[in-house]
Design a protein around this nucleic acid. Sequence first.
RNA 1: AGCGGGAUGGGAUAGCCAGGAGAUUCCGCCGGGCUCAUAACCCGGAGAUCGGUAGUUCAAAUCUACCUCCCGCUACCA
Length: 695
Amino acid sequence: MSDHQATHEAFPTGAPAVVTCGLPYANGDLHIGHLRTYVGGDVYSRALESLGQQTAFVCGSDMHGTPIAVQAIEEGVDPEAFALEWHEQYAETFPKFGVEFDNYGHTHDDTNRELTYDIVERLEAEGYVYEKEIKVAWDPVDEQPLPDRYVEGTCPYCGEHARGDECDEGCGRHLEPGEIEDPVSTISGNPAEYRDRAHKFFEVSELSEYLDGFLDRLEGTSNARNQPRQWLEDGLQDWCITRDLDWGFDYPGEDDLVLYVWVDAPIEYIASTKQYTERVGADEYDWAEAWREDGEIVHVIGRDIIQHHTIFWPAMLEVADYVEPRAVLASGFMTLGGKGFSTSRNRAVWAREYLDEGFHPDLLRYYLATNGGFQQDVDFSWEKFRDRVNNELVGTVGNFIYRSLLFAHRNFEGTPEADVSEEVEARVREAIDDFEAGVNDYSVRAVGNATVELARFGNEYIQREEPWNLVGEDDEAAAQVIRDCVQIAKAVAVLFEPIAPDTSEELWDQLGEDGSVHDVTVDAALEAPPRDFGAPAELYEKIEAERVEELNEKLAARVAEATADDAGTETDESDADGEGDVSDIEPVADDRISFDEFQGLDLRVAEIVAAEPIEDSDNLVKLTVDIGLEERQIVAGIKQLHDVDDLPGTKVVVVANLEKAELFGHESNGMLLAAGEDADLLTTYGDSPVGTKIR
RNA sequence: AGCGGGAUGGGAUAGCCAGGAGAUUCCGCCGGGCUCAUAACCCGGAGAUCGGUAGUUCAAAUCUACCUCCCGCUACCA
């Protein structure tokens, strides 16, 4: 196993760097909350390159796992085709926001397969994998295994209701497959049974000491170190790395077992880097050096997947003898007008939507990158967006550039003949230092602010020196000032490239520069600009107040509609064509049922005798219901929507022959009928006695 | 409920990890100046006892304990 330095050298280092973004899971549309991570990664990798660091920026779509398998089945398509469709969409979307990966692959290809097998085999060879017979939840009716969160039941440790992979409501423990008691399928609702299955385990517990040291070395945002520390203290459990599933990579030598998605997903980071090398050649970028010798690996992720990147992933890398990550940057989440994004409720600003509104991607990049620290939760609103664009991009940066270049063009037809003043040269140096410090602090925000502050200085400077009063009076002095301003403009182009690649390129052209700003390093900020350039054009456009109102109205209307509607439309794929208004009312189901089938439902008039809220649940109420023949306990999700004390005495309609289920640890023997999101209870018009069958 | 994050003038943020002059910067607001520019900049002003309580200390926004509130993630909603 490799030995790593306890401290890291500051960027830029001589080693190749790899910047990765968390793999998007190929099953849904991207919104600007997702984009925050990708823009952050892109800015960071561009900034590294600007410092002269050799950098590969890679990512790919995560194609495997149970959710995709299940969704594909629901849509009646092949999981691979299903995932590929999303993958292609992502691959198309990212560049539209200037997020330009050196390689964007996906987990279901040969490069990843080979590397995954290679690593898994190393884990085995090093003796870190063992087989254990465990009980796997199985749906006996649908004849399918129920991995992970497709089963729920009772936590064996604390007795609370829990999800298949985690005791989310009680003790918080990670649950390995087979541990949960009283399992029930979350797909079909069928009580699950356990079957003995041999599964593979990765002995993470043996690596606690290594991981402890790793976390000491790890750089990046503090949340990425704090969270896993807790895990380590509680003691690590070995990690089951196989699943009973058809979709994914078969476990080597086991054709009825598939590798757990979180094994092959991060390996795509390596695979994608390798594909990059295969494309450009090892002279340009050597993936093997980066991953096997001395690379600087920087992972940019959302904070929900910190554990995987700071425990499982480095453990795998360590055993398989790869380079460990140098830094993990875990972004905070985004809120929209103070509340969380909700894809299922269409409470989101979609990536595509933003572009359709005609906004320049650089504006959003700037907002996402500089609004709050990276690990901070950040709020998006169109008002804030407008304020920052108008004040900072238009007022400060754009205005300075335009006034300077316009003045230079009119009076000097380009860059005046003069040397940069000491003051301005020092100020540009300071901006470069701030930029570099930002990179080494893993703060994309600081990187962006360095430039805006430089432009702000530029405005002060030009204002103070008043070149417009010098022209004709003291042309030499005027030339000096404008020369300085052009230099600052050039520095802005160079230093703002990571944040606003497109407009920086435009500015670069305006300055009469050859080539691309993308290819220069920060040193260029101090080099002389070309002598001649033409009339400048405005870089950024103001956003009018009416525009904001309009956008807010659109959003509010959509959210209201989605909220009023039954959120029962589980997921939100397809139909995102954004055309026309979707009706508030769910369409009638296509499948007609026979009268006999209806007869199979035993619906009864019942009366609520007693009701008490279930502690710790937001929504569940335990009801005692009189159905004439007997009193029954039913659990219903109506706590927030009715005053629980008013419920007793209410006549309701219940499904009497529904199979029993256990919810939140309480038995539910039947189901009461209610309408819509508001859980408007169905009751009787006349006074049919309790127990009456409904037909 | 578990976990994570947060609470600093009207809004947003920095400082807090390595405690010391009633506190950073941006936006907004009020009054005045300047005008090359999608206007920016300058001068002046109003506005915070740094979520609460208790403690450590000569000294706390900064350390400790407890509490409150907010947000997110993960859920049940048969």
